[in-house]
Write a protein that binds this DNA or RNA. Structure first.
Lengths: 214, 214
DNA sequence: TGCTGTGAAGTGCTTCACAGCG
DNA sequence: CGCTGTGAAGCACTTCACAGCA
């Protein structure tokens, strides 16, 4: 991890960095070697100064008069975010969504590996999903320690999300990605990111509703 | 849709309203009739004034000295967001993720219905997924008009996301939910919400990385 | 000359503090 | 008396504008 230059980095900046990586990787695939903040900003739908300021939180990656070298910028951002390595994750809740995520190739290709799948339904135990055997949630703690798992992914129905979170916390997990449409309560030192489809759907519904007559 | 009292509503407010609904619905299930801004704020991890201000954008839903009536507040927020009705959606890209979303029960139970599934892979055409027949993307426009579809959901691989978006725009869709890890370009009057898992994973990786030694 | 990196200015969201009302 | 609704203050992020360097 790159020693970040500055103190407090806005959360909004972190979110945008992930977008920059995505857009830059696309540019790299199209054999673009160098990019300046203007076009990069346009492709990411933000202001050019914003791009420069975001990057400046972590270092001086550009060349004045020229711009940024695409592949080294990708590397620098990934290093800054801490995603320049493999991450091992456990999935709790092997329903439709859980199975889809286990099969979703993009994760693996970006260094994010599921190495455990857990469920409390006895009918699912022992089932093989994409090379993983579904295990009882009670074995989560042992698996986390044994397999060095750092991230927990919750894909249970909403009413079981809190229990899944409790298991993950008990197992020593410090980062949770919660796909269940429910809030969960965890200790302060555990980070949670909510991926709630309804947040987006509701926002979209609002946008459509408020613009349709104008 | 409730005539919103005030001018420009912060996007952050819209996102939080979706959280309030979720938490309030959970309270309603637990037979809580009345809630004041303090405990509601705590459950949503925000400030109490924030809750009051967010709600005040749309009207005066509370009773001074008492609080908010849970079920009427849920209704009022849904009305304000425009989610007090059914929405019909088309899904483009019937891969693992697409299939999982089509099967995901929470959508239907919250008034969000998939009434079309599209893919350009000839091997998938005609296949039945959760009661829907997979159709060729070239038939999208006709289906959108015929079935009154208002929202398009993109679950293609990243390299095909733009083409899917183009088809949806051409069909007259004004709201797109993009699950593909790729930016898409659309006209100004089309709303896009990005559901990019990597935004969350990267943020989580950053949080874990920056706190693990302290 | 062209584009980065950055202090300063601008903007908008959040929090405070309290008047107002049931 | 308690809690909402809200102007005003505070704070944080964004944008501007330009100095500085390749």
């Amino acid at each position: 991890m790159l020693p970040q230059k500055s103190e407090k980095i806005p959360r909004a900046t972190i979110r945008r960095l992930a977008v920059y990586v995505q857009v830059l990787e696309n540019m790299a695939r199209n054999n673009i070697d160098v990019i300046s903040s203007g076009p990069l900003a346009e492709a990411c739908d933000v202001n050019a100064s914003q791009v420069r300021k975001d990057l400046a939180y972590f270092g001086e990656f550009g060349v004045r008069g020229v711009g940024y070298h695409v592949t080294s910028l990708i590397h620098a951002i990934k290093l800054s975010l801490g995603v320049d390595r493999e991450w091992r994750a456990a999935l709790v809740g092997v329903g439709n969504l859980g199975r889809a995520l286990l099969h979703y190739g993009e994760f693996k290709s970006r260094g994010f590996h599921f190495v455990g799948a857990f469920d409390c339904d006895p009918f699912k135990l022992g089932e093989q999903v994409y090379g993983l055997e579904v295990s009882c949630t009670s074995t989560l703690k042992a698996a986390v320690q044994e397999k060095n798992i750092e991230i927990g992914v919750i894909t249970t129905p909403p009413e079981r999300a809190q229990r899944a979170a409790d298991h993950l916390v008990d197992a020593g997990i410090k980062g949770i990605l919660n796909f269940a449409p429910a809030r969960i309560v965890v200790p302060d030192d555990v980070h949670v990111e909510y991926v709630d489809f309804f947040h987006y759907i509701y926002a979209l519904a609002f946008d459509i509703s408020t613009t349709e007559n104008r």
